[in-house]
Computed example of a mutant assay.
Amino acid sequence: MSEVKIEPFPVSIPERDLTDLRERLDRVRLPEAETVPDGAQGIGLSRLRSLLDAWRQHDWRALEKRWNAIPHYRTRLDGLGIAFWWVRSPEPDAFPLVLTHGWPGSVLEFEDIIGPLTDPVAHGGSAEDAFDVVVPALPGFGFSARPQEPGWKPGRTARAWADLMTRLGYGRFGAHGGDWGALVSTELARLAPERVAALHLTMPFASPLPEDVATADETEKGMLARRERFMLTGSTHVRVQSVLPQTLGYSLLDSPAGLAAWLSEALVAFSDTRPEAGGGVSVAQQLDDIALYWFTRTGASAARWYWEAARGTPRDAETQNALTVTVPTAFTLFPAEPFPVSRRWAARRYHNLISWNEMEYGGHFAGWEQPGVLVSELRNAFRQVRDH
């Protein structure tokens, strides 16, 4: 594949890989049950057994059929093969939008919003809100190639996304992301502000300064407490994958039970599991995602993203906030987000806030948990910059 060639490709996992998975699931070896009932030791044995039982019934071929119904392509960007969905709207004035996922998610987070975004009329919306949608898989995730050398940090990925949009014929476009996708999108807006018409994020990358902590109101104090709890008990995946992704990766590649436990732990912990919120990321959505990681053998390469980012992303608030974003930025905040940010903290880094909307339901995975809300928020966010 040449550096500039864009080619479609079929998704078709060899049958021997499906057979191998079935055999591994049949002979899976699990530990004894946890010794506490509150989840303090991680995903419980009963829950994992139920998840593995459901995986035995999972229809990968049905997911392949859905995938192959979405226009998907490969190209080489900065020497690496990148896979992406590219769905053009039937509306002639559609606005280009690049959507970027994070971990432990995948492009599948956006599967249910592609139709309403690209063809709003068919989904009860207005033609003026139509988008051409581009959904690339991060390096080392899904059907994108696994990097063979260090250096694929958020900034490099953002530059690759800018090159991708150029290659697809888009000079000016919007960007959206959550989790690592929010950081890549932030970097894209920072590095190419003349091209990013607006930015929409569900997870601000901004931290409070000491003076913010000292002057925090009651709401911000609650956020600080949640952030502290997350760093103490919820950020194990960050610490392990930032330091020992290769060691962890052997288990993620060799054991379907290990992969399912590692991904499902975060998929549930970071979503809004309240019944009135829809229950969070469903078992079916989890299994589609877990199976994608399994069949593409990307457990280790996705984990390595944290190792790369830890060496290319400033952690201290002062340095982080100095990397300012000037393009119009809209935020949609969901209550189960494990690492909350206040508007005051975010405004120090994102200098042109055009909206800040706090939702009643939802968590870290908006495209899976609250797809209708996300579609509405994206339409509203980009409506005011389309013609500028």
Rank of each mutant, 00 (worst) to 15 (best):
T202W: 00
E187R: 15
S185K: 10
A130D: 10
D132W: 04
R66C: 05
G81T: 15
S106I: 12
R76T: 15
H200E: 01
V135M: 07
G151D: 07
G140S: 12
F95Y: 07
H200D: 00
L99A: 10
E187P: 03
I82H: 08
G102L: 09
E64T: 11
P71Y: 03
R76I: 09
D78P: 00
T166S: 07
F143K: 05
I82K: 06
A83R: 07
E194W: 10
G124E: 03
A198Y: 05
S106F: 11
E64N: 07
M203T: 08
H101T: 09
G81C: 11
Q148N: 12
G171V: 05
D93R: 13
R190E: 12
Y73C: 03
T202D: 10
H123Q: 05
G79I: 11
G140T: 13
R195P: 04
W161D: 00
G79V: 11
W67G: 00
T166Q: 06
F95P: 00
L201G: 07
D112E: 14
P154L: 12
R88P: 03
L108K: 04
F141N: 06
A158L: 11
L97A: 06
P139W: 12
L191Q: 15
N68K: 05
G140L: 11
G177P: 05
F141L: 06
A69Q: 10
T157I: 15
P120L: 02
V87H: 01
G178I: 06
L99W: 05
R159M: 06
P150A: 10
F110T: 05
A69C: 02
W161K: 00
G181V: 13
V87A: 12
S144H: 12
P154F: 12
R146C: 08
D129P: 00
L168D: 02
A189M: 03
A160E: 00
L99T: 04
G169E: 04
A182W: 13
A127H: 02
R66D: 12
V135C: 13
A130N: 10
T118Y: 07
L80Q: 10
S144P: 11
P120Y: 01
L164W: 02
G81M: 13
L99Q: 05
A175P: 03
I82L: 14
K153E: 14
T100F: 00
G174R: 03
R88D: 01
D112K: 15
P147M: 13
H176M: 10
G181I: 11
H101Q: 11
G105A: 14
N68W: 04
W85E: 01
R172H: 14
A83Y: 09
R195F: 01
L168Q: 01
E194P: 01
A83D: 06
A158H: 11
T166G: 03
H72T: 04
L80G: 12
S144V: 12
L199T: 08
E111I: 08
G151N: 13
M203Y: 05
P204W: 04
W103F: 15
K65I: 08
I114T: 03
G102R: 08
V121H: 00
D129F: 02
